[in-house]
Protein backbone atom coordinates (compact mmCIF):
# COMPACT_ATOMS: atom_id res chain seq x y z
CA UNK A 1 0.00 0.00 0.00
CA UNK A 2 2.81 2.41 0.99
CA UNK A 3 4.58 1.57 -2.24
CA UNK A 4 1.49 2.43 -4.26
CA UNK A 5 1.01 5.74 -2.44
CA UNK A 6 4.63 6.57 -3.23
CA UNK A 7 4.07 5.67 -6.88
CA UNK A 8 0.93 7.78 -6.96
CA UNK A 9 2.84 10.77 -5.59
CA UNK A 10 5.48 10.29 -8.27
CA UNK A 11 2.88 10.05 -11.03
CA UNK A 12 1.15 13.22 -9.87
CA UNK A 13 4.43 15.15 -9.62
CA UNK A 14 5.51 13.91 -13.03
CA UNK A 15 2.17 14.79 -14.66
CA UNK A 16 2.23 18.30 -13.21
CA UNK A 17 5.80 18.82 -14.36
CA UNK A 18 4.85 17.66 -17.85
CA UNK A 19 1.70 19.76 -18.04
CA UNK A 20 3.46 22.91 -16.87
CA UNK A 21 5.24 22.89 -20.23
CA UNK A 22 1.90 23.80 -21.78
CA UNK A 23 0.78 26.67 -19.60
CA UNK A 24 -1.41 28.26 -22.26
CA UNK A 25 -3.62 25.18 -21.78
CA UNK A 26 -4.81 26.69 -18.53
CA UNK A 27 -6.18 29.73 -20.33
CA UNK A 28 -7.85 27.74 -23.10
CA UNK A 29 -9.36 25.12 -20.79
CA UNK A 30 -10.36 27.69 -18.20
CA UNK A 31 -12.20 29.66 -20.88
CA UNK A 32 -13.84 26.49 -22.24
CA UNK A 33 -14.98 25.50 -18.75
CA UNK A 34 -16.43 28.94 -18.15
CA UNK A 35 -18.39 28.90 -21.42
CA UNK A 36 -19.71 25.38 -20.77
CA UNK A 37 -20.69 26.43 -17.26
CA UNK A 38 -22.42 29.57 -18.54
CA UNK A 39 -24.31 27.56 -21.14
CA UNK A 40 -25.44 25.03 -18.54
CA UNK A 41 -26.56 27.79 -16.21
CA UNK A 42 -28.43 29.53 -19.05
CA UNK A 43 -30.36 26.31 -19.73
CA UNK A 44 -31.31 25.98 -16.06
CA UNK A 45 -32.38 29.63 -15.93
CA UNK A 46 -34.41 29.23 -19.14
CA UNK A 47 -36.17 26.18 -17.73
CA UNK A 48 -36.97 27.73 -14.37
CA UNK A 49 -38.11 30.85 -16.17
CA UNK A 50 -40.94 28.67 -17.49
CA UNK A 51 -41.62 26.34 -14.58
CA UNK A 52 -41.35 26.40 -10.78
CA UNK A 53 -39.65 23.02 -10.54
CA UNK A 54 -38.00 20.33 -12.67
CA UNK A 55 -38.92 16.79 -11.68
CA UNK A 56 -39.89 18.11 -8.25
CA UNK A 57 -36.55 19.90 -7.71
CA UNK A 58 -36.44 23.63 -6.98
CA UNK A 59 -34.02 26.05 -8.66
CA UNK A 60 -31.40 25.88 -5.90
CA UNK A 61 -31.73 22.12 -5.62
CA UNK A 62 -31.15 21.88 -9.37
CA UNK A 63 -28.05 24.07 -8.89
CA UNK A 64 -26.58 21.60 -6.40
CA UNK A 65 -27.23 18.83 -8.93
CA UNK A 66 -25.56 20.85 -11.71
CA UNK A 67 -22.56 21.38 -9.42
CA UNK A 68 -22.27 17.63 -8.79
CA UNK A 69 -22.60 17.05 -12.54
CA UNK A 70 -19.71 19.43 -13.26
CA UNK A 71 -17.56 17.87 -10.54
CA UNK A 72 -18.04 14.32 -11.86
CA UNK A 73 -17.44 15.51 -15.42
CA UNK A 74 -14.19 17.20 -14.47
CA UNK A 75 -13.15 14.08 -12.50
CA UNK A 76 -13.52 12.10 -15.74
CA UNK A 77 -11.52 14.68 -17.66
CA UNK A 78 -8.79 15.08 -15.04
CA UNK A 79 -8.16 11.44 -14.21
CA UNK A 80 -10.10 8.81 -16.17
CA UNK A 81 -9.97 10.15 -19.70
CA UNK A 82 -6.20 10.92 -19.84
CA UNK A 83 -5.42 7.39 -18.67
CA UNK A 84 -8.00 5.20 -20.36
CA UNK A 85 -7.79 6.99 -23.70
CA UNK A 86 -4.21 5.70 -24.02
CA UNK A 87 -5.06 2.05 -23.53
CA UNK A 88 -6.43 1.30 -27.05
CA UNK A 89 -3.30 2.71 -28.68
CA UNK A 90 -1.03 0.82 -26.27
CA UNK A 91 -2.81 -2.42 -27.10
CA UNK A 92 -2.79 -1.75 -30.82
CA UNK A 93 0.94 -1.11 -31.10
CA UNK A 94 1.98 -3.54 -28.41
CA UNK A 95 3.46 -1.04 -25.95
CA UNK A 96 1.06 -2.48 -23.36
CA UNK A 97 3.81 -5.11 -22.93
CA UNK A 98 5.84 -2.56 -21.00
CA UNK A 99 2.95 -1.99 -18.59
CA UNK A 100 2.82 -5.73 -17.90
CA UNK A 101 6.57 -5.92 -17.33
CA UNK A 102 6.56 -3.35 -14.53
CA UNK A 103 6.55 -4.70 -10.98
CA UNK A 104 3.20 -3.16 -10.01
CA UNK A 105 -0.45 -3.90 -10.61
CA UNK A 106 -1.17 -3.24 -14.29
CA UNK A 107 -4.67 -2.01 -13.46
CA UNK A 108 -3.11 0.58 -11.15
CA UNK A 109 -0.62 1.68 -13.81
CA UNK A 110 -3.30 1.88 -16.48
CA UNK A 111 -5.63 3.86 -14.21
CA UNK A 112 -3.47 6.42 -12.43
CA UNK A 113 -0.41 7.12 -14.56
CA UNK A 114 -1.56 10.46 -15.95
CA UNK A 115 -3.29 13.51 -14.59
CA UNK A 116 -4.63 16.37 -16.64
CA UNK A 117 -4.47 19.32 -14.26
CA UNK A 118 -5.96 21.92 -16.57
CA UNK A 119 -9.54 20.78 -15.97
CA UNK A 120 -9.20 21.67 -12.30
CA UNK A 121 -10.96 25.05 -12.84
CA UNK A 122 -14.04 23.08 -13.91
CA UNK A 123 -13.85 21.05 -10.70
CA UNK A 124 -13.70 24.28 -8.69
CA UNK A 125 -16.61 25.78 -10.63
CA UNK A 126 -18.64 22.64 -9.93
CA UNK A 127 -17.81 22.78 -6.23
CA UNK A 128 -18.69 26.48 -6.18
CA UNK A 129 -22.07 25.92 -7.86
CA UNK A 130 -22.92 23.06 -5.49
CA UNK A 131 -21.99 25.20 -2.46
CA UNK A 132 -23.97 28.14 -3.88
CA UNK A 133 -27.09 25.97 -4.04
CA UNK A 134 -26.47 24.47 -0.61
CA UNK A 135 -25.92 27.86 1.02
CA UNK A 136 -29.11 29.21 -0.57
CA UNK A 137 -31.01 26.21 0.77
CA UNK A 138 -29.36 26.41 4.18
CA UNK A 139 -28.57 22.72 3.87
CA UNK A 140 -25.48 22.20 5.98
CA UNK A 141 -26.16 19.39 8.46
CA UNK A 142 -23.33 17.08 9.43
CA UNK A 143 -25.27 13.97 8.39
CA UNK A 144 -26.26 15.21 4.91
CA UNK A 145 -22.69 16.35 4.31
CA UNK A 146 -21.25 12.99 5.35
CA UNK A 147 -23.80 11.15 3.21
CA UNK A 148 -22.99 13.47 0.31
CA UNK A 149 -19.27 12.75 0.51
CA UNK A 150 -19.81 9.01 0.82
CA UNK A 151 -22.16 8.91 -2.16
CA UNK A 152 -19.88 11.13 -4.20
CA UNK A 153 -17.10 8.58 -3.66
CA UNK A 154 -19.52 5.80 -4.63
CA UNK A 155 -20.43 7.74 -7.78
CA UNK A 156 -16.76 8.19 -8.65
CA UNK A 157 -16.20 4.47 -8.18
CA UNK A 158 -19.12 3.64 -10.51
CA UNK A 159 -17.84 6.02 -13.17
CA UNK A 160 -14.35 4.60 -12.80
CA UNK A 161 -15.65 1.07 -13.31
CA UNK A 162 -17.70 2.02 -16.36
CA UNK A 163 -14.77 3.81 -17.99
CA UNK A 164 -12.37 0.96 -17.19
CA UNK A 165 -14.73 -1.57 -18.73
CA UNK A 166 -15.25 0.54 -21.86
CA UNK A 167 -11.48 0.93 -22.23
CA UNK A 168 -10.94 -2.79 -21.62
CA UNK A 169 -13.06 -3.54 -24.68
CA UNK A 170 -10.01 -2.36 -26.62
CA UNK A 171 -8.45 -5.78 -26.04
CA UNK A 172 -10.93 -7.19 -28.56
CA UNK A 173 -12.19 -4.25 -30.61
CA UNK A 174 -9.58 -2.04 -32.20
CA UNK A 175 -11.66 1.11 -32.58
CA UNK A 176 -12.88 2.10 -29.14
CA UNK A 177 -11.50 5.63 -29.02
CA UNK A 178 -15.03 6.90 -29.30
CA UNK A 179 -16.37 4.86 -26.42
CA UNK A 180 -15.85 7.83 -24.16
CA UNK A 181 -18.27 9.76 -26.38
CA UNK A 182 -20.81 7.07 -25.68
CA UNK A 183 -20.40 7.52 -21.95
CA UNK A 184 -20.63 11.31 -22.15
CA UNK A 185 -23.78 11.02 -24.28
CA UNK A 186 -25.63 9.24 -21.50
CA UNK A 187 -23.90 11.22 -18.80
CA UNK A 188 -25.32 14.44 -20.27
CA UNK A 189 -28.68 13.36 -18.83
CA UNK A 190 -27.11 13.65 -15.38
CA UNK A 191 -27.52 17.42 -15.31
CA UNK A 192 -31.23 16.91 -14.59
CA UNK A 193 -32.77 14.90 -11.75
CA UNK A 194 -33.91 11.49 -13.07
CA UNK A 195 -37.44 12.37 -11.92
CA UNK A 196 -37.53 14.94 -14.74
CA UNK A 197 -37.70 12.16 -17.33
CA UNK A 198 -40.56 9.87 -18.41
CA UNK A 199 -40.79 6.61 -16.47
CA UNK A 200 -39.10 4.36 -19.04
CA UNK A 201 -36.16 6.76 -19.49
CA UNK A 202 -35.88 6.97 -15.69
CA UNK A 203 -35.64 3.18 -15.47
CA UNK A 204 -33.00 3.17 -18.21
CA UNK A 205 -30.95 5.84 -16.40
CA UNK A 206 -31.25 4.05 -13.06
CA UNK A 207 -30.66 0.40 -13.83
CA UNK A 208 -29.13 0.13 -17.30
CA UNK A 209 -26.80 3.15 -17.39
CA UNK A 210 -26.71 4.09 -13.70
CA UNK A 211 -26.60 7.86 -14.22
CA UNK A 212 -29.10 8.29 -11.37
CA UNK A 213 -26.52 7.00 -8.86
CA UNK A 214 -23.79 9.18 -10.33
CA UNK A 215 -25.40 12.63 -10.01
CA UNK A 216 -28.99 12.56 -8.70
CA UNK A 217 -28.31 10.42 -5.60
CA UNK A 218 -25.26 12.35 -4.28
CA UNK A 219 -27.00 15.68 -4.94
CA UNK A 220 -30.13 14.43 -3.16
CA UNK A 221 -27.92 13.57 -0.17
CA UNK A 222 -26.38 17.04 -0.15
CA UNK A 223 -29.77 18.75 0.11
CA UNK A 224 -31.18 16.28 2.63
CA UNK A 225 -33.85 14.67 0.47
CA UNK A 226 -32.15 11.33 0.16
CA UNK A 227 -34.03 8.05 0.03
CA UNK A 228 -32.05 5.59 2.27
CA UNK A 229 -32.85 2.71 -0.08
CA UNK A 230 -31.23 4.56 -2.98
CA UNK A 231 -28.20 5.39 -0.81
CA UNK A 232 -27.71 1.74 0.14
CA UNK A 233 -28.21 0.70 -3.49
CA UNK A 234 -25.59 3.22 -4.62
CA UNK A 235 -22.97 1.77 -2.26
CA UNK A 236 -23.78 -1.82 -3.23
CA UNK A 237 -23.72 -0.90 -6.91
CA UNK A 238 -20.36 0.87 -6.54
CA UNK A 239 -18.76 -2.19 -4.94
CA UNK A 240 -20.31 -4.51 -7.53
CA UNK A 241 -19.20 -2.33 -10.45
CA UNK A 242 -15.62 -2.02 -9.21
CA UNK A 243 -15.40 -5.77 -8.61
CA UNK A 244 -16.87 -6.49 -12.03
CA UNK A 245 -14.53 -4.09 -13.83
CA UNK A 246 -11.54 -5.58 -12.00
CA UNK A 247 -12.55 -9.09 -13.01
CA UNK A 248 -13.14 -7.97 -16.61
CA UNK A 249 -9.75 -6.23 -16.83
CA UNK A 250 -7.88 -9.27 -15.46
CA UNK A 251 -9.76 -11.56 -17.80
CA UNK A 252 -8.78 -9.31 -20.74
CA UNK A 253 -5.12 -9.16 -19.71
CA UNK A 254 -5.04 -12.95 -19.40
CA UNK A 255 -6.12 -13.26 -23.03
CA UNK A 256 -3.76 -10.52 -24.26
CA UNK A 257 -1.39 -11.77 -26.94
CA UNK A 258 0.49 -8.54 -27.73
CA UNK A 259 0.51 -6.87 -31.13
CA UNK A 260 0.78 -9.16 -34.12
CA UNK A 261 -0.05 -12.15 -31.91
Amino acid sequence: MRRYLGLLRLFVANSIQLELEYRINLLVNGFNSLVAFGAGLAVIYAMFGQAGSIGGWSFHEALVLFGVFLMIQSYVEILLFPNFSQLPEQIRNGSFDFVLLKPASSQFLVSFRHLSIWQIPELLIGLGVALWGMVALGAFGLVPLAAFLLLLVAAMAIVYAICLMLATLAFWVVKVDNMSELFFAFFAAGRFPVTAFPAWVRLLLTFVVPIAFITTVPAAAAIGRLDPVMAALAVVLAIAFVAMSRWFFRYAVASYTSAGG
Binding site: M47, E181, A185
Partner: peptide
Protein backbone atom coordinates in the same frame (compact mmCIF):
# COMPACT_ATOMS: atom_id res chain seq x y z
CA UNK B 1 -16.30 1.59 -39.55
CA UNK B 2 -20.07 1.17 -39.37
CA UNK B 3 -19.97 0.53 -35.63
CA UNK B 4 -18.17 3.82 -35.18
CA UNK B 5 -20.96 5.62 -37.02
CA UNK B 6 -23.48 4.14 -34.64
CA UNK B 7 -21.47 5.48 -31.71
CA UNK B 8 -21.45 8.97 -33.18
CA UNK B 9 -25.22 8.83 -33.57
CA UNK B 10 -25.67 7.97 -29.89
CA UNK B 11 -23.08 10.59 -28.96
CA UNK B 12 -25.31 13.22 -30.57
CA UNK B 13 -28.27 12.41 -28.39
CA UNK B 14 -28.13 15.54 -26.21
CA UNK B 15 -31.11 17.13 -28.06
CA UNK B 16 -33.12 14.01 -27.21
CA UNK B 17 -32.24 14.35 -23.54
CA UNK B 18 -33.30 18.00 -23.68
CA UNK B 19 -36.51 16.88 -25.38
CA UNK B 20 -37.42 14.58 -22.48
CA UNK B 21 -36.58 17.25 -19.92
CA UNK B 22 -38.71 19.90 -21.69
CA UNK B 23 -41.59 17.47 -22.18
CA UNK B 24 -41.53 16.90 -18.43
CA UNK B 25 -41.74 20.65 -17.82
Amino acid sequence: YRAELAIWVVAGSLPLIMMFAWIGI
